[in-house]
């Protein structure tokens, strides 16, 4: 068997789908062991994916291109999944709440499945065109995706919060298995703060890069503008805590809106609008 990066990355897709299924089973049937297994599977998937990414990096050198696996739409989806899992592993390790996995790992699984199976996503290793040949590429993509991945988790927490609702009387055992609202709210806020920091750094590194490539740090192209819109939404969420009456529910909605904006910045702009970041339209 020839171990190739595309083999490892397809394998990752199935492992993550399995992990997401296990987390859901763990939540719905509340079997402790399944939760532990889900975590184990996630870690295995993460390791396989890391190897796959490293291998892809090496393969690009063998092809004579030599660049980090961050240069096209396929690779960005893989990185998104990788970082989402990384952020989630950290949260599970910190909070020991496995239920969150049922709301976080599906994002990574879906991204991988889309990357692997969609006919629209070209997965060959391509050389870097001149505009992408910059050390800022790595910094920009990794920081942006750290932000996006945190927002994905925050969105999962937001959905969880809204599902759980505010009434204390609920007897639905599915909902009772979720952490209390206060804990979800707190985690949601923390992941949004973390994501906001990385999104800010991502926008800044992008500006520095644009400035060295084109001599303009901000040109209001649709992708830039949408990242700024996303940034405004999360800035709203951070400030809303200080406005009376803006508690839990509204912040949860904002985390979902915010992530919708992330998705649009990431996919919608590529497919629906035109601009400099024509990553996906290739």
């Amino acid at each position: 068997m020839i171990l190739s990066s595309s083999y490892l990355l397809s394998l990752t897709t199935f492992i993550y789908l399995g992990a997401a299924a296990l987390y859901l089973i763990h939540w719905i049937f509340r079997v402790k062991r399944v939760g532990a297994l889900a975590f184990f599977v996630t870690i295995v998937g993460f390791i396989v994916q890391t190897l796959g990414l490293a291998l892809r990096w090496r393969e690009s050198y063998q092809l004579g291109y030599g660049h980090a696996p961050l240069s096209n739409f396929y690779e960005s989806l893989v990185i998104f999944a990788w970082i989402t899992i990384l952020v989630y592993i950290y949260i599970e390790w910190k909070t020991k709440r496995r239920v969150i996995g049922a709301f976080a790992t599906p994002f990574a699984s879906l991204a991988m499945a889309y990357a692997s199976f969609s006919p629209n996503v070209e997965d060959t290793i391509q050389p870097l065109i001149p505009a992408l040949q910059s050390n800022w590429l790595l910094a920009h993509v990794v920081t942006c995706f750290l932000g996006y991945a945190s927002f994905a988790v925050a969105c999962g927490l937001g959905i969880m919060y809204l599902m759980r609702g505010t009434e204390k009387g609920s007897r639905n055992p599915l909902l009772m298995a979720l952490p209390e609202n206060k804990i979800i709210d707190d985690l949601m806020h923390q992941t949004m703060v973390f994501g906001f920091l990385w999104l800010s750094i991502g926008i800044i590194t992008g500006s520095i890069w644009a400035n060295s490539a084109w001599g303009t740090y901000w040109s209001w192209d649709p992708k830039e503008t949408w990242s700024l819109i996303t940034w405004f939404i999360y800035a709203t969420a951070l400030h809303a805590r200080f406005v009376r009456g803006w508690r839990g529910n509204r912040i949860a909605y904002l985390s979902i809106f915010g992530f919708a904006s992330v998705i649009f910045t990431y996919f919608g702009v590529n497919f629906l609008l035109s601009g400099l970041h024509s990553y996906g339209s290739q």
């Binding site: 819109i229 405004f232 800035a235 709203t236 406005v243």
Partner: peptide, 21 residues
């Protein structure tokens, strides 16, 4: 007021969309 700040942030987010369409 921070209420105004929240209002302006939302306004900026919404109006900025127009120029991308």
């Amino acid at each position: 007021s921070i209420k105004l700040a929240v209002f302006l942030l939302i306004t900026l987010a919404i109006t900025s969309i127009v120029g991308t369409l």
